[in-house]
Nucleic acid binder design. Structure first.
Lengths: 248, 248
DNA sequence: CGCAATTTTGACGTAGTTCAACACGTGTGG
DNA sequence: CCACACGTGTTGAACTACGTCAAAATTGCG
């Protein structure tokens, strides 16, 4: 069951959320179908719900849910989790503004994981049944869907390859930070101060490390003046060194 | 550059290759477009080349090559590899009959890894440019392509999820053997004798272990009467135990 | 402020790596 | 035909990175 809160909560002392522009969103190929020659708004409104608010901890879908919608993050961060046979949580990914959630369920029509907001967030929602209905009649939309799928396949592949080749805890962490930096940056502009919405436990869980190990790695990187950390903010000081570590 | 040998080499003392049936192949949705209402042969012949022979070590494409074709394995086994900045090989997957190769390059149009035959093999070849040209005019083919992509996305996702939950060497090996067994088996029939075309070094490389560690794990599994190994043949004796180990 | 959750630090155990030696099969050349 | 190299796989012994356990320090929140 989808479980999004529409309540407009007061922004806490978090910085204001920055919303990603549609032009930088992975969903754009099916949200901005200008090529269709139809009124874009009129068409997309049939299956697209824009900027739905979600509060901390709210769940877009649960592992095992039938596929109803796919989502694009507008602001905030989501974690994707698997649940062990004995209800241990395993984080298999994070999603940042401009990235898709739930699209990997298009084939078996069932979500293989859960998606949970880490803090307040907003998402755009695409109803799959309605989208599919439209692809039947609008050929260009189908083409856009192919494009979306191939791009997404590529993203998954990239992540897989970056993961499978890492060995030491240090290189995992380095690769993680660089990956986050890249995904939070806009095109051509490299971000060096990272807001991490997730806890250290979340990161350790995702990377398959113990929280203690992660803590020690961060401490080491800080001591070597490669990064600077102050609670949820991590600053990349020596990007080159970090790259070197990531590819070791 | 594609690099397939058409020479009909004498079968060595390997067992005869078993070719996968098209009905069990991941490519079927675009190879058997019976729904198109056209002469299937006439249509698919435009982009499909069936059962091309490839010899041991031959390369379908290199990491960095521009995408020309995607392939389905008919017989034999392929390894997919990344090359390190200093030419160490990292194996990121194996492909068995009925499975696709190169499809993940559909988006950036460049292969992110190499595909190399482990022994003699045959593949079916789909020319992407021609396929794409046809999808423009044959809507059902486009739909089939969407289906292929979503299924493939799903497969990647599954593999990623199995990988990211980092585990002991023993459970990695157990999961690997079960995975191989499942992929080499046909529907509903569980295979217990596995022909491993890849060397122990290949497996160790893929799993991120040292060859010595892998050897010790195999020895332990054999001592505990869970598997039986005679060079390239591995027999799963106690499937249940193997499952238990895989999920630990 | 005060309590709970998160993060860090230290001491110690262990799984897997590293290094080195050996065993086996296969191909090559004298 | 044997000698030798070479690729592949196995085994033992020492080493090390990460996990485990326990406790302290810091942060966040009512």
């Amino acid at each position: 069951m989808t479980n999004i809160s529409h309540k407009n909560r007061q922004q806490s002392d978090d910085k204001c959320h920055s919303y990603v522009a549609c032009e930088n969103c992975a969903m754009q190929s099916i949200c901005l179908p200008i090529k269709t020659g139809q009124q874009p708004l009129k068409l997309t409104n049939q299956y697209l719900t824009k900027r739905v608010n979600a509060e901390q901890g709210s769940v877009l879908f649960h592992q095992g849910d039938a596929l109803e919608n796919i989502y694009a993050v507008c602001s905030g961060t989501y974690k994707l989790t698997l649940e062990n046979r004995f209800s241990e949580e395993k984080i298999i990914g994070f999603r940042f503004p401009g990235e898709l959630i739930g699209d990997d369920a298009l084939y078996p029509k069932v979500h293989s994981h859960s998606a949970i907001a880490l803090g307040e967030a907003t998402v755009c929602k695409v109803n799959v049944a309605q989208l599919m209905a439209y692809t039947q009649t609008v050929p260009d939309l189908q083409l856009s869907l192919v494009e979306l799928l191939t791009r997404q396949n590529y993203v998954s592949q990239q992540q897989f390859e970056s993961f499978i080749s890492k060995k030491s805890a240090e290189s995992l962490v380095a690769a993680f930070l660089l990956n986050i930096a890249k995904r939070q940056s806009s095109k051509e502009e490299v971000l060096s101060v990272l807001k991490l919405a997730m806890s250290r436990d979340n990161i350790a869980n995702f990377l398959g490390l113990r929280r203690e190990t992660l803590s020690r790695v961060f401490a080491k990187l800080q001591k070597e003046l490669i990064i600077e950390q102050t609670k949820k903010l991590v600053t990349v000081i020596d990007r080159e060194q970090l790259c070197r570590l990531a590819f070791t």
